[in-house]
Design a binder for these strands. Structure first.
Lengths: 114, 114
DNA sequence: AAATATACCTTGACAGGCGAGGTATATGGT
DNA sequence: ACCATATACCTCGCCTGTCAAGGTATATTT
């Protein structure tokens, strides 16, 4: 397992929902976008990516359809649903509170003098 | 699984090392401190806590000894090692970079106009 | 012909978290 | 005397997300 993977764990769904928020996309493209945004420091492994799609579709957060490519490899496009937008909002809020919580738990406390 | 548990996953070791950084402590006390710091919003489950101790001791990040309580339940105290301090420093740095990375991946991008 | 890029998918294993259960000592209430 | 509660430790086995490894297919470049 790579260095950051344990810390990124649990954010996969949020990352995907964020990627779909402003428009439909497909797995390969979403992953390329992630690599670009992180300057190649992070990518979703394919198995992780596609199992996340399954999970999200089962939960009703996204829906999918086959693209009508006449050339090249076929693409399965994903759309974020209204439920998915709500999930995204909730996950964002949870992240903000988790972030503060983690910071307070792992930073060393100043010793209170006097 | 509780709401935040997936987001906290992977931080257990760092939290424990932070708790031991300024002095020896034992499982029950460390967990109480976590509950206090988070105003009861978070706690390490016992199974999680003790399996983390095993992991950290095996890795050489902490060492342990039995307290000499003459009354009450026995306590196993843990000490952070020099290796553990280095691990803590590394995990903190990783957290800072992961935090920035996650933020950039899950926040919605402003549409660039013109 | 072979390598590379695009694009999807499945299987099986691993690791961390955790529910459930167990052990033991001390205190306070009835 | 009995019970609940708090303190304090431990183990077993399951669940879930991640991922290495493998597979399929089309199109382009060398």
């Amino acid at each position: 397992m790579s260095i950051t993977s344990d810390l990124l764990r649990g954010h996969t769904d949020t990352i995907i929902l964020a990627g779909l928020f402003t428009g439909d996309s497909y797995g390969y493209e979403i992953n390329k976008a992630i690599q670009q945004k992180t300057n190649g420091r992070y990518e979703l492994k394919e198995a992780t990516l596609y199992s996340a799609f399954r999970r999200l579709e089962e939960a009703g957060d996204i829906s999918s359809y086959w693209g009508d490519e006449t050339t090249g490899a076929r693409r399965r496009y994903y759309t974020i649903t209204e439920t998915g937008r709500e999930t995204y909002t909730r996950l964002m809020a949870e992240w903000k509170s988790a972030k503060a919580m983690i910071d307070s738990l792992i930073e060393l406390e100043e010793k209170k003098n006097g």
